[in-house]
Each structure stands twice: as structure tokens, then as C-alpha cells.
């Protein structure tokens, strides 16, 4: 555990909590892509299967359980409890365009051709692109609430901080995982445009509105 990894995890946790609180407090999931949340739930489910096969640390187990629970709670809020507020007409990203390439890539580019390893690889590739339905929704409606922007910023920062963690681990522990690094860089790159808007608009007190 190094400072980048810890900050990354804190940022990830913060993002999930911000989203849950936003939906709960406003009693609405307007502006939130249910599809992205479904993809994140799939990501955590397939990645954390090792929760039952091997123990890493109390921290590791605790965080995995929290991410899984929070993810399913979010799905429940969007698709059950506050379903009437779910903006389905704007959540039109075709996720099969993500699932198909991710599945093919995980079958071709993995560390080992075993079920658990392929599912782990699948989750890594899927996470990299899981935010696309949400970003598509923001671009479609042309705006995002401040709180949604904070959520996206925290969620985007998390993998960026993980990249610093991987650089650190490469030099300090000679550890690296090319699959995670490749997907992590792609994931962070996808947020770049949003980061720019967040810094130039939201942090200056303006609404996140895209140029027409």
C-alpha cells in the first residue's frame, strides 16, 4: 500500500458515496446512467469472485464488500426505488457495443486461460469503458448537475491515481500488470475531456454545460 493507491481507493469510495447520497437525498436519479451502474455492478461481481477463494487482507475484503454492496444498492435505487425518476430516454448508449469487444479481448489477451482469470480480465476491460453510457448521457443532455460532476471527477481520479501507484510499484516492488495498466490508462484517457470541463467550469462555480 502506497499513498497513490490509498488516495485512489479513497477517491473511488468517495465517488460511490457521493452517488448514493445524491440519489438518496434528492429522491431522484435524474441524469444518472443506469446502464453505467449496471456495468460497474458486473465489473465488481466478476472481479471480486476471489473474495471467496483467497484472503488478501482485512482492508481488501472490507473494500470489496463495500464496493459490491454500494453498487447493488445504487442499482436498486435506480431501477426499483426511484425508477420513476430514471431518465431512460437519455440513457440510450448501446452497451452491446462495449460488451462484445470486451468479451473478445478478454478471451484473447489474458494472463491465463482459466475461468476466474478470464472473468478478472473481463472486469478490468469492462471497467475501463463502463463510464461511457454516463458520459454519453451527459453529452446528449448537454449538461450535468454539480453533484454528478463531483461524482464523475472522483471516479475518474481513482484510476488516474492507480496509474501513479503502478509507476511507484514498478520501481519500488518491480511489480507490474500490463492488462491493468493498459486498461487503466484507457479508462483515465476517456475522462480527459470531462476533467477539462470540470476544472474550467465546475470548479469556477459554473454549471457543467457543453458547448452546443
Amino acid at each position: 500500500m502506497n499513498i497513490f493507491r490509498l488516495l485512489g481507493d479513497v477517491s473511488h469510495l468517495l465517488a460511490i458515496i457521493i452517488l448514493l447520497l445524491k440519489i438518496w437525498k434528492t429522491r431522484s436519479c435524474a441524469g444518472i446512467s443506469g446502464k453505467s451502474q449496471l456495468l460497474f455492478a458486473l465489473t465488481y461481481t466478476t472481479r471480486y469472485l476471489d473474495l471467496v477463494t483467497n484472503f488478501v487482507s482485512v482492508y481488501n475484503t472490507f473494500m470489496k464488500v463495500v464496493f459490491l454492496a454500494a453498487s447493488y444498492a445504487t442499482i436498486w435505487l435506480i431501477y426499483m426505488k426511484f425508477r420513476a425518476t430514471y431518465d431512460q430516454n437519455h440513457d440510450t448508449f448501446r452497451i452491446e457495443f462495449l460488451l462484445l469487444p470486451v468479451t473478445i479481448l478478454s478471451l484473447v489477451a489474458n494472463h491465463e486461460f482459466t475461468l476466474i482469470e478470464i472473468l478478472w480480465t473481463w472486469s478490468i476491460y469492462l471497467e475501463a469503458v463502463a463510464i461511457l453510457p454516463q458520459l454519453f448521457m451527459v453529452s446528449k443532455t448537454g449538461e450535468a448537475e454539480s453533484i454528478t460532476s463531483h461524482y464523475l471527477f472522483a471516479l475518474g481520479s481513482y484510476r488516474g491515481l492507480y496509474i501513479l501507484n503502478w509507476i511507484y510499484r514498478y520501481y519500488m516492488e518491480s511489480y507490474y500488470d500490463l492488462i491493468a495498466i493498459f486498461a487503466g490508462i484507457l479508462q483515465t484517457v476517456l475522462y480527459c475531456d470531462f476533467f477539462y470541463l470540470y476544472i474550467t467550469k465546475v470548479l469556477r462555480g459554473q454549471r457543467l454545460q457543453l458547448p452546443a
Binding site: R5, D9, H12, D50, N54, V56, S57, N60, M63, K64, F67, H111, E112, E117, W120, Y162, N165, E173, S174, Y175, Y176, D177, L178, A180
Partner: peptide, 10 residues
Amino acid sequence: LCGVMYKDEL
């Protein structure tokens, strides 16, 4: 180190 190893990251 690279490849399959026990994964300590989230």
C-alpha cells in the same frame, strides 16, 4: 513480476 499472481488491488 508480471502475470497471474494473487491480486491485492481493487
